[in-house]
């Protein structure tokens, strides 16, 4: 695992700090959906892992999936994703607040879907 490139990042777990260290990370959860912004080329200064991450996200994936595919901890990937969102290379797909519980309408849709499986 190549962590050399991340010496400058605060590699602390966002779940341990509840994202307090970095407000924009508050919205990132393992299930948060992300996708690459196609029109936006990755900066030439970006590291290999950042490029790989953006490449992975040519379609929608959850943060946890990105972490698993990169074989990196979710906490570290959350930091990378946060930076890439700030840089305009990634967009957050899930259109809800992370702390808000799914409403009854959502639960009904989930139930319908599960009953059809």
């Amino acid at each position: 695992m190549d962590t050399e490139e991340y010496r400058d990042h605060p590699v602390r777990s966002y779940v341990l700090t509840s994202g307090r260290a970095h407000p924009s990370r508050n919205t990132l959860r393992p299930e948060t959906l992300v996708r690459a912004v196609e029109s936006r080329p990755v900066l030439s200064t970006a590291g290999r892992l950042e490029r790989e991450l953006v490449q992975l996200c040519q379609g929608t994936l959850a943060l946890a999936e990105v972490a698993a595919y990169l074989a990196l901890p979710v906490s570290l990937v959350a930091v990378m994703v946060s930076d890439l969102v700030d840089a305009g290379n990634l967009t957050i797909r899930s259109n809800h607040q992370a702390h808000v519980l799914p409403g009854k309408d959502i639960l009904e849709k989930i139930l319908d879907g599960l009953r059809k499986l």
């Binding site: 959860r29 299930e31 948060t32 959906l33 040519q58 929608t60 899930s94 959502i106 989930i110």
Partner: peptide, 17 residues
Amino acid sequence: RPVPGQHLAPTVARSVK
């Protein structure tokens, strides 16, 4: 590493857990 590539359908805009 698992082989990546199983993206969600483009219509998916919400995740729950």
